[in-house]
Structure formats: structure tokens, C-alpha cells
Computed example of a mutant assay.
Amino acid sequence: MKLSSEQVAELRALAGSRDVPAVLALRARIVLWAGEGRRRKDIAEWAGVSAPTVDRWKRRYAELGLAGLEEHKRGAPRVQVPPRVRGRVIALTRMSPPMETGLSHWSTRSLAAYLKRSEGISVSWHYIARVWREENLQPHRSGTFKISKDPAFAEKVADVVGLYLDPPGGAVVLSVDEKTQVQALDRTQPVLPVTFAATEKRTADYVRHGITNLFAALNVGTGEVVGECHPVRDTGNFLAFLKNAVKPHAGKEIHVVLDNLSIHTAPAVREWLDENPHVHFHFTPIGSSWLNQIEIRFGIITRQSIRRGTFPSVAALVTQIRNYIDAWNINAKPFTWTATTNEILAKVRLAQRNVKKLVANNSK
């Protein structure tokens, strides 16, 4: 039984919680032990249950998540959570907590308590955790929210989000950007004396061999990625990459989402756009790179392929990036964009109000 890091964290929190029945905490431990690869008979012995019981809770968790560990009375109908409540959980999760809560982000318990206190909605934190997992919501991983000062913010958000949620029929939507100064680092691990190996923390040495700049385009509809590495980021390299990115989609209308970098609006680029009227640029608001889906892919490439890699040369780094993209494209899947324009603008308005309140309180 394989568990993700998020599942392990949830189960450990449940197993160590004093707010849940002991039997529920025991079931969480059973699943954790199974996830660690423990033998079935050992788990049964440690938990003081039969082997079929171990199988039962493993199966229930695999099918229903944390909710599957809860026991429902036989003969009693299972209480269904209304769709309206589920929608409210999702909507609140996507917004910063109200200022009066003093929270920087939601946890499952704090959101459950807030719903009960402010709206009279009673749901368990287990239910909220399941909704977050199903909707791929991770508010605890959210960073700082930067409020854009772009005067056309609302119009640009509506334009870009409209392409994500309802692209023109038969058109191709490409999300384009550049990841600059990707470093080729050779990581070496010094060997410590045996007497200190158990007590001293090992530190890695980093030898820098150079950098490259990754130009990439994400096909929003298919999830496929086109990527090229260049020694410098300039108008010539960007335009060359752009031509290669749109080439496979000849004969179609192509909509390109990108940021406000100067090379994206250079005279040579504008001239090329005039010569290719089937290609349309859509710019994200200033300071809102999070609206560009390729940024998500850059983050994944960094975590899974670059950050912990060892590259003795720039060529080795470039090969690693190319291999990763090629492997991804074999079974590419698109991101599921769910945030609507209204939800994004509502979150921005809330953030603006909270900032104004904070400034007002600090000035008193």
C-alpha cells in the first residue's frame, strides 16, 4: 500500500489526535503501518485485531480516504452533505481567511470551526480533508499573495481565465514563459569521520559550472510541453523559440498567454505578429505570473528534475531537462483550471480590504 506525503501527514495527525476516538486513531495507525510496508500479521498483532480487520481498514481507506475509517451504524442511512455545503468549503478554501480570524491560511480544523461558528454549517475536518484531496486544494502551501497594481487587472484576468475555462473552438492555447539562469551545479558530499558521522550534520558542496535559460510553452488543452534551452534570454532567442512552438499548429488560431517582459513586445516580435495574424498574444496582469500555467510546470520540473540533480556541465543540465520533457510528453495531461474570474477578483478585493484594515490599525 503506497501513501503520499500528504496522506501520511493526515494519518499521523489523526493517529496522534486527542480529539478523536481511540478506535479511529488505531485505524489510522493500521493504515500507516501498511503504508510503511509492514507485514499483515505483524500489524494485526500490534493493533490487537484480526488479519481480515487489517485488510478491511486498508481497503476502506483506499476507497474513501479518511472518511472510510469512520464507523457508520448499521441500518442507519448515511448522511449526505448537500452540494451547497461542498461548494462553500471549496469557495472559502480558495480565499484568504477573514482578517478577524487572525489566520494566514486555512487548516481543515480551523475551516470546520469557522463554518460552524459563522454560518452554522456542521462538517467534520475529515470531510474537508477529503474535499481538498479531491479538488487538489492545498491552502497550507500557499505563499504570499501579491496584489497587482495593473490598472487593467480585471480585464486581463477575464481574458486569460476565459481562455482556460472556455477556449475558442478549434483554437490552440499556449502558455509561454522563460525560466532564467537555471544553474548547472555539481553537488559533492564530503565524507565525515566515523566518530562524528552520527552527530554532525552533513553539508553539501556546490560547484557551479554555468547557467542556461529555459524557454517553454505549455499546450493548455493537451498538457504537452515544448522546451528549448538557450545561453541568453533575448528577443532573437525568444522569437526563434516562438516560431518553433507554433509550427506544429499550422492552420489553426493560436492564443499565447505570456507576461509583460520587454522581449515579448519587442519590435521584431510585433512585426512577426503582424505577419502571422492567426497568432494572438494575451498578457497576464503585471505582477501576476501565477496566472500563467507554465509557471506551474516550471515548479514541477524544478522539484522533480533539477533541484536535487548533479550536473557536471551545462550540457548535462540541458540533457536532463530535454529528457524530462520528452518523458512527460509521452503521457502528458493538462492541468484542470477551476478558478473563475469572479472568484479571483473576489479574493483580490478581500486582500485589498484586509490590507487597508491592517494599515488603518497600525496607524492608530
Score class of each variant (00 low, 15 high):
Phe196Ile: 14
Trp106Arg: 04
Glu6Phe: 10
Pro285Phe: 00
Thr199Val: 14
Arg18Ala: 11
Glu224Asn: 06
Ser122Thr: 13
Arg86Asn: 02
Gln320Lys: 15
Leu111Cys: 07
Trp337Asp: 01
Ile330Asn: 12
Glu119Val: 03
Leu317Tyr: 01
Pro83Tyr: 06
Val318Met: 05
Leu261His: 15
Arg74Val: 11
Ile263Pro: 07
Thr319Pro: 01
Asn219Trp: 03
Val207Leu: 14
Gln304Glu: 14
Thr53Trp: 10
Ala204Cys: 12
Ile330Trp: 11
Arg130Asp: 07
Thr284Trp: 01
Val20Met: 05
Leu11Lys: 03
Ile90Cys: 06
Arg74Asp: 10
Arg307Gly: 00
Ile147Met: 07
Thr53Ala: 15
Asn136His: 15
Val131Pro: 03
Val8Tyr: 02
Ser107Pro: 05
Pro231Lys: 08
Ala250Gln: 13
Val161Pro: 00
Ala332Arg: 04
Val314Thr: 04
Val220Cys: 07
Val318Asp: 11
Ala339Asn: 10
Pro97Asn: 07
Ile306Ala: 00
Thr212Asn: 01
Arg353Tyr: 11
Asp205His: 13
Arg322Tyr: 10
Gln80Asn: 11
Ser262Phe: 08
Lys149Asn: 14
Ile30Glu: 00
Lys364Glu: 14
Arg133Tyr: 09
Ala22Phe: 12
Arg59Gln: 15
Gln7His: 07
Lys364Val: 15
Leu185Ala: 04
Glu200Pro: 01
Asn323Val: 12
Arg40Val: 09
His126Val: 07
Ile306Leu: 12
Arg208Leu: 11
His278Gly: 08
Ile301Gln: 02
Thr222Pro: 05
Pro82Ser: 09
Lys252Leu: 10
Ser124Leu: 05
Asp159Gln: 09
Val279His: 00
Ser363Arg: 15
Lys252Tyr: 03
Ile263Lys: 03
Lys356Phe: 11
Pro52Ser: 07
Gly37Arg: 09
Asp159Gly: 04
Arg27Ser: 00
Phe298Thr: 00
Ala217Trp: 01
Val31Ala: 02
Arg353Gln: 15
Pro277Gln: 06
Tyr164Glu: 05
Val220His: 03
His282Ala: 07
Arg78Gly: 14
Phe281Asn: 04
Ala316Cys: 08
Ala240Gly: 10
Leu103Ser: 04
Arg208Gly: 09
Gly221Cys: 08
Val194Asn: 11
Glu45Gln: 13
Gln7Asp: 07
Trp57Ser: 02
Leu350Phe: 08
Ser17Trp: 02
Leu214Ala: 03
Lys73Cys: 13
His280Arg: 12
Thr284Gln: 02
Leu32Gln: 04
Pro97Ala: 06
Trp132Pro: 02
Asp55Thr: 13
Trp328Cys: 05
Tyr206Met: 07
Arg78Lys: 15
His264Glu: 08
His280Pro: 00
His209Asp: 07
Val207Asp: 13
Trp33Met: 10
Leu192His: 09
Ala204Ile: 12
Ala158Trp: 01
Arg187Gln: 13
Lys356Tyr: 10
Pro167Gln: 08
Lys73Leu: 15
Pro312Phe: 06
Trp106Cys: 00
Arg88Leu: 08
Pro98Lys: 06
Glu6Cys: 06
Asn244Asp: 15
Val246Glu: 04
Thr212Pro: 02
Pro248Cys: 09
Arg86Met: 11
Asp259Glu: 04
Leu185Ile: 13
Asn331Leu: 14
Glu45His: 11
Ser122Gln: 14
Thr284Ser: 03
Arg109Gln: 13
Leu174Ile: 03
Pro248Trp: 04
Glu253Gly: 06
Asn323Trp: 10
Asp274His: 12
Arg59Ala: 15
Gly68Thr: 03
Asp205Thr: 15
